[in-house]
């Protein structure tokens, strides 16, 4: 690994994402719209379905699915345009690519979380020490989504990777995460399936942290860490294999 190359490659990835208006619209605009709309709806319904204390951590995790889309799109585009082929002929090594593609997405994840929390403040969300813990917990959760992006971008065409991360993953993380409704309302196999996947654990973890309920953070954190590790290992394996087979 060459730190200098990771730095230059990360900087390039960051520029590519931030200069794409769609990235800004989805990465920053969409979570803001969701928080504003659902908070307005919440004011007009009696039972407080979208309590801001739980809504903001939920949307923060849901927003991470767009990071998977960014990662998948940029890797798949680099493959299809042969830009990555060109770079395979340079002194760049596999880890320079992997870190270069993934590291710039971490500050974007944190920025997205901060945007969600600032929006939440307009609807009565209190910032406190627990907010800092939530922001720290966003990091392991974001690894899951970034690694999914790495996997999809490496294994599929740009069209397929965009469909998988842009449609399938966002839907999966929306319906099976408990962001929009309490999974107990459905229960049964649906709930069991949701709890076998990482999304609801990431949301429950941040919701618990946001209220200072740290005993309920840990069990979910283990799920999140385990999924992060599995997806990262799979992503790295697929990318290295792609590089070797090219």
């Amino acid at each position: 690994m060459n730190i200098r190359n990771v730095k230059f490659f990360s900087s390039r990835i960051m520029k590519e994402i931030l200069r794409d208006p769609l990235s800004i619209a989805f990465g920053a605009g969409f979570p803001i719209v969701l928080i504003v709309l659902l908070s307005l709806i919440n004011k007009n319904i009696p039972n407080g379905l979208f309590d801001i204390t739980f809504l903001v951590p939920g949307v923060t995790i849901f927003g991470l699915s767009f990071l998977a889309l960014f990662a998948a799109q940029i890797i798949a585009k680099d493959r299809e345009s042969a830009f990555i082929t060109r770079l395979f002929t340079t002194p760049m090594k596999a880890w320079d690519f992997i870190l270069g593609y993934t590291l710039p997405l971490l500050p974007l994840a944190l920025l997205q979380a901060v945007i969600c929390y600032i929006t939440g403040m307009f609807f009565g969300l209190q910032l406190n020490i627990h907010t800092v813990v939530v922001l720290l917990l966003v990091i392991p959760a974001s690894f899951i989504f970034i690694a999914i992006g790495l996997i999809c971008g490496t294994a599929f065409s740009e069209k397929a990777a965009t469909a998988l991360c842009g449609a399938a993953l966002t839907n999966l993380s929306a319906w099976l995460s408990g962001v929009w409704f309490d999974l107990n309302l459905v229960g049964g196999a649906f709930k069991k399936m949701a709890y076998l996947l990482p999304f609801v654990h990431a949301v429950d973890m941040t919701k618990a942290a946001n209220t200072g309920d740290y005993t309920n953070v840990l069990p979910h954190l283990w799920w999140v860490l385990a999924y992060s590790i599995v997806f990262i290992v799979l992503g790295v394996y697929l990318f290295r294999r792609h590089m070797k087979n090219k």
Binding site: R12, K15, E16, R19, D20, K77, E80, S81, A82, F83, T85, R86, T89
Partner: peptide, 15 residues
């Protein structure tokens, strides 16, 4: 020792 210009344009589009 080498420089490669692939068949596709192979450039970073937003740079």
């Amino acid at each position: 020792y080498i420089g490669v210009s692939p068949q596709e344009t192979a450039i970073a589009p937003n740079l």
